[in-house]
Design a protein around this nucleic acid. Sequence first.
DNA 1: AACTCTGTTGTT
DNA 2: AACAACAGAGT
Length: 430
Amino acid sequence: MDYSRDEKITLRGGLSHNGRPVELVREKDGKVIPLAIGSENAYKKRALSEEDIDDDEVLRSMARRRKSDKPGDVLHMCRDCKKEFKRPCDLTKHEKTHSRPWKCSEEKCKYFELGWPTEKERDRHVNDKHSSAPAQYKCLYPPCTYASKRESNCKQHMEKAHGWEYVRSKSNGRKKSQAVSNSPATPLTPFLGTPQSTALTTPITPFMASPSVPLINDFDPYGFGTPAISLHNFQDDFRRDSITTDGTHLTYSSGNSPVEPNSFVEAAVTPADVTIDHTDALFPNCGMGSNFNMGFQQHTPALSTDFNFNEPMFTMASNQTLGLPQLSPMAQPDLTLFSPQMQIDEGFGDAMDTLDMQAFSRPTEDFTLFDAAPAGNMSMNNTANFFPDFNQLGGQFGNGAQQFDNTYYNANALETTLDEMLGLNNSNQQ
DNA sequence: AACTCTGTTGTT
DNA sequence: AACAACAGAGT
């Protein structure tokens, strides 16, 4: 390695300075570059067998800096591979790709020694390689039979193979397109249709939607079609921690992967531009885990005028009406533990009386739905009111005061909708 | 700062 | 094309 005259080699750090051992660094052009320390963890780029990165790689890495990075930004450099990160926590995360502390439990597996950078990756690996019944994410465009153990791959498949367009819940640094944020035109273009929920497409799903269930007109700009709802066993721990929609779909996702075949309520939704992201508001302390979130994201302004709150927001297939939003194509992974009695033309009674209700059988108290709350906030203390069928059957939610964040939606409008919904439950079952 | 989700990109 | 690994960014 050549060093020019404008460089200097110095000792930096030390436990009293930055908590790290003193290291030899090279300073050049205002940059501080740690010198190689003979680490056994020298960064191997993706392929673990690849050779150590060379100077070209360092330059490429530098070139990848974003334009938005200001010159004064303090970058945090990995001592092993010299990669830089804007946030310390990103460096911390990156360093895990060297230490790989999460080990596979299978002794014969190479990842028993090697490990994974994150628990999630380790779990995903176990699902991929060592699970006797790995979770599967299925393509929801019938009759496509694609399935993947990876949710992201399934999503990618549906986007590429079927033109599925959905609004990301995170921009990941990319600017949201106008179409997403403001214009109804693009997201509502009905071109390719929208994948149906798992309940509609997977043979294993017992709760098939009735083809005769009418669309909810104003909520079906995609021709999304028959709403359906599935009630899967609530057994094991409930580890999904979010349900989101993107204007077209609701999506469950899991806080831990792989997900055991948990059960959950699943439904197809008419694609109102609604994002559910604060499930705690609907399921306070009902045994689904404290991180189970569902909430509402307000309709995009341009679409709001089309939002007909006089129409039922949620419905379900069969003869049931549950106050549940319909779900998304990604309401996955595949759930293999279905109760045989969960048939479409049966009520919930049989199933709900048994283990399916266990998750709802927490102690509870009665509350008033939308009890006196400050304007703009809805305190929703009796979640069971959202699920009168459950309630009638003896299912109960735990109590817990939750609030919707009214920055996400128009509280009055939603309340109106919910009133309609509840009214529908009482008098308009299909 | 950890966790989470998602996009990008390398590898198979 | 699909799988896999990891980084960027939001919560």
